[in-house]
Design a protein around this nucleic acid. Structure first.
Lengths: 155, 155
DNA sequence: ACCTTATTATGAATAAATCACAATAACCGG
DNA sequence: CCGGTTATTGTGATTTATTCATAATAAGGT
């Protein structure tokens, strides 16, 4: 074990990206990036819990600061599902969407159905210049569909 | 002036719908429905302010209760844009989406690009049974694009 | 009109996220 | 390698949106 938790290779990758965005390389940022990378769709609470495995004294507020800053730089993507705290993921460059199970709340990545650029060309944009189209699918995952009394089930 | 604020016709329409959903017809519910109908994409605060024109003593909490209940019955639709309180609208039966201006935050309705049913058939649903696809477009409205220093502008 | 029960009012409580400012540590230059 | 500057983090309080618990009220059937 030569490194703390992440491999040196990924650490170097994050470091390079941080520098490219004019950010200093701190162990907090590396730990947050590693946590989000290994636990996609984790919320701030979960990220803090994971990060505390290596940085036991980090505060939730600091995790928020790091997450917010990394989201602004574009190194992280924030998903904000209804009735759920914001979730984060490291997949930022490909255009993909998300499916949320209305039964258990789990989130899965869904590749864009059409291609790369925003999937839909809306018919009437009211003069708006559309930059991104975020799609949130909602439905029942296989597990919840199997259970007898899941909320939102058709019968 | 034979009615308070809404026309008797629309009031009757709401009343019938409320009864159809097994709900009692109260002036609070009618006022909230009327407010949301006349101010689409209004938040709970705004709805409360509008409702207070006819029911000055209604509390914000009661507005929340009514909005939540009507949303559960399907008479209202709730939109939850990032970094903004939940918004409500009375258009519930047609499948339409929303476009939010990243500059000023205004919300516009956007008709579904493809047709009626969920616009997109995702390529990989991880075993989920998709029921709805909610699309949130983000971009700059004409007003914000004209201003010189709008956040999110390309140059 | 009365009674039952849904609905509303009231006040407190919760959860997510942000802010201000002090303490710390990265990075740059020597 | 060492110190100084400045970004970053820590700490604690604060804000905002929303929900909860319980008491008061009023809708609708008989």
């Amino acid at each position: 074990m030569t490194s703390t938790a992440a491999s040196a290779a990924t650490t170097d990758k994050w470091s390079a990206q941080l520098r490219a965005h004019g950010r200093r390389v701190t162990k907090q940022r590396l730990a947050v990036l590693d946590a989000v990378d290994h636990s996609p769709h984790a919320g701030a609470d979960e990220v803090a819990a994971i990060v505390r495995a290596t940085l036991p004294d980090i505060s939730l507020q600091s995790v928020y600061v790091v997450l917010t800053d990394l989201t602004e730089t574009g190194m992280l993507r924030r998903i904000e599902p209804p009735h759920s705290p914001a979730l984060y993921e490291t997949r930022v460059d490909d255009n993909h969407h998300h499916a949320m199970c209305t039964g258990c709340g789990r989130i899965e990545d869904v590749d864009c159905a059409v291609g790369h650029a925003p999937c839909l060309t809306p018919s009437n944009t009211h003069g708006m210049t559309i930059q991104i189209a975020d799609v949130l699918y909602q439905g029942l995952c296989a597990d919840c569909a199997a259970k007898p009394d899941t909320p939102g089930k058709t019968s």
